[in-house]
Computed example of a mutant assay.
Amino acid sequence: MLSEEEKFKEYLLSKKLKFTPERQAILDRIFANHKHFEADELLVDLRNNNLKISKATIYRTLSLLVKSGLLREVIFGERHAHYEHVYGHEHHDHLVCNKCGKIIEFIEHRIEKLQDEVCKSKKFKPESHRLQIQGLCEDCNKIEDSAKR
């Protein structure tokens, strides 16, 4: 399996784009750890590490990383999009707390199997999907229940 950098370089080459020092720095910071992040958090992280990269370059690079299959956008709605690594990681879905913003990852093979069966029955060839369930996490649910008493 190719490294993240090799896969990104391969993608950029296929689009006749350059692997610039800015793209290298963004890639390195993103893959330094495995967590969900927002573009603005990445901007702050880069600046805290004395890397002066424009917001526009960050957004363009994030878009390229998503298109290359290295990242996935996971949270939408009133908040900014969040991103996570997907290359080399098993597919998973998300529970998102509407109150505190906690993101809980889960893998449920029965859901995956059912989705495959639906696609097969409809003669549909899936390329990707994302499942995100909005609600209240256990902690926020307890707080809300206590407030109702």
Results as ranks from 00 to 15, higher is better:
E4N: 14
E4W: 14
E4K: 13
E5G: 12
E5N: 05
F8M: 14
K9H: 02
K9Y: 01
E10W: 13
E10N: 15
Y11A: 09
Y11G: 05
L13G: 09
S14Y: 12
K16F: 07
L17N: 09
L17T: 06
K18S: 11
P21M: 00
E22K: 08
R23S: 07
Q24C: 07
Q24W: 01
Q24E: 02
A25F: 02
A25D: 02
I26Q: 00
I26P: 05
L27Q: 00
R29T: 11
I30P: 03
F31A: 02
F31Q: 07
N33S: 08
N33M: 07
K35G: 04
H36M: 07
E38I: 09
A39D: 10
A39P: 07
D40K: 05
L42W: 03
L43A: 06
V44N: 06
D45H: 01
D45E: 04
R47Q: 06
N48V: 10
N48G: 06
N50S: 01
N50K: 00
L51M: 01
K52M: 04
K52A: 02
K55W: 01
K55S: 06
A56W: 00
T57H: 04
T57W: 03
I58H: 01
I58C: 01
Y59H: 11
T61L: 01
L62S: 03
L62P: 04
S63M: 15
V66G: 11
S68Q: 12
G69F: 11
G69E: 13
L70R: 15
L70C: 13
L71N: 09
L71P: 08
E73Y: 08
V74I: 15
V74K: 14
I75G: 01
F76I: 12
G77N: 04
R79N: 09
R79E: 04
H80V: 15
A81S: 05
A81T: 05
H82S: 12
Y83S: 01
E84A: 14
G88R: 13
G88T: 04
E90M: 10
E90L: 12
H91K: 10
H92A: 03
H92W: 04
V96F: 02
C97Y: 03
K99Y: 03
K99V: 05
K99L: 00
K99R: 09
K102F: 01
I104C: 09
E105P: 09
E105M: 12
F106V: 00
F106Q: 00
R110T: 10
I111S: 03
E112P: 05
E112L: 03
Q115F: 06
Q115M: 05
C119K: 08
C119F: 10
S121D: 06
K122W: 05
K123Y: 11
K123W: 04
F124P: 05
K125A: 14
P126S: 01
P126W: 03
P126R: 15
E127V: 15
H129E: 09
L131Y: 03
Q132S: 03
I133E: 08
E138L: 07
D139W: 06
D139T: 13
E144Y: 02
E144G: 06
D145E: 12
D145I: 14
D145G: 12
D145P: 14
K148M: 06
K148Q: 03
R149G: 06
